[in-house]
Write a protein that binds this DNA or RNA. Structure first.
Lengths: 203, 203
DNA sequence: TTTAGTCACCGACTGTAGTCTTTAATGAAA
DNA sequence: TTTCATTAAAGACTACAGTCGGTGACTAAA
């Protein structure tokens, strides 16, 4: 499986060089202020090389965004098992939002959320095989089993609603230019309210 | 106030011609498949004229979107006063979503929601002076006065959360290419759950 | 080792949104 | 009525994402 020809190894190196240079430049100047020509020039490659390895300028950033799925897997390993499902979802939300805010950053999220609307691109955000969905789904199932959540709504549906609320919070974050919007607090508030509506104790 | 010179009248006519042609072409071919050159050619005007009247291609579509605020005002005139605040919000949501789905259409909403993320453009979606905010705000206030909603959360905040949920539903609608996503049903479900969490009867 | 084919890469080219300089028609002031 | 300033409109031009035909180094089969 790891039998790469000389050629393929070199290609991989080129791809990595483009990726590194892109991310470096995006970080310095912002996605919109970096041109593909510049990336290509700084990385010492070419337009042709860029587009053999990436479908678009957006896609380079998407590659970085995908790291978040590893973050989720990591998170679950450390998640204490004994706490409530609600608590688990809140903890997940908090950690996730801090990660997005401090590590990936608003510029990246903006790029992802803009690009996701384009019908021609991959439906990454709503791809149900993402670790994120599985994690939330598992927590929700447990929450229903132990009578914490209503079971009049399917776990699939609840998962759906939770992740949609998170997307909503992130989208709104993107809308604000200044720092008036506290992503972590806003997301937690929204999720808390949603969980309130999901509690089994309400009618 | 209505003293327009010959020149201004002609200018207004040009603007209208560009607007009509644009909307016609967007409707026929989709926003992304219409070029500014085409609009200009079909409307018998010029690039220069186009950009004196509109800041961007997106902004033409935004003009259409703004009609929705008249829709809200209209809606309120017909809203029965005697029903619950929750019921009013649900009714508003349903009517609004049908209007967006059937009259404005997904292509327009996609355009608005893509454009809104761009920090350089007007923050129309989160502009709190929009009729939409005022309407929701009024309903919420009444709901708190008559003890229907918790009053541990400020009406501003609740309004905020409601409108955010709506944006979330609309954003998700944009993500789906096929017709698997029923905008009206999904929005109502989300809002119902949110209202559940806002009820005064829960702790 | 030769040879035929592949594919990573190159960079000139295309399409399109948006800008900039110029022009002429209008309107205000004398 | 003449003059001067204003501004809507025109269209050539720029910037930039993405495409496409060509090229040569590498691979694999003989």
């Amino acid at each position: 499986m790891e039998k790469l020809t000389m050629r393929q190894q070199k290609a991989l190196k080129t791809k990595q060089k483009i990726l590194d240079t892109s991310l470096y430049l995006f970080g310095r100047k912002g996605f919109n202020n970096v041109t593909v020509d510049e990336i290509v020039q700084v990385s010492g490659t070419s337009k042709g090389a860029f587009y053999t390895h990436f479908k678009s300028k957006h896609e380079v950033f998407l590659e970085k965004f995908k790291e978040i799925d590893n973050f989720y897997l990591d998170f679950m390993k450390k998640m204490p098992e004994h706490i409530d499902a609600s608590e688990q979802i809140l903890k997940l939300t908090e950690t996730q939002m801090k990660y997005l805010r401090d590590y990936l950053g608003k510029d990246l999220i903006r790029t992802i959320y803009t690009n996701a609307i384009d019908p021609n691109t991959s439906q990454f955000l709503i791809n149900e095989s993402r670790p994120y969905f599985n994690i939330v789904h598992k927590i929700v199932e447990k929450g229903q089993e132990n009578g914490e959540f209503k079971n009049t709504i399917s776990p699939d549906r609840i998962t759906n609603l939770v992740t949609r609320n998170i997307r909503g919070s992130l989208y709104d974050w993107c809308l604000y230019e200044d720092e008036k919007y506290d992503l972590v607090q806003e997301s937690l508030d929204v999720i808390k309210l949603l969980l309130e509506g999901l509690k089994a104790t309400n009618s």
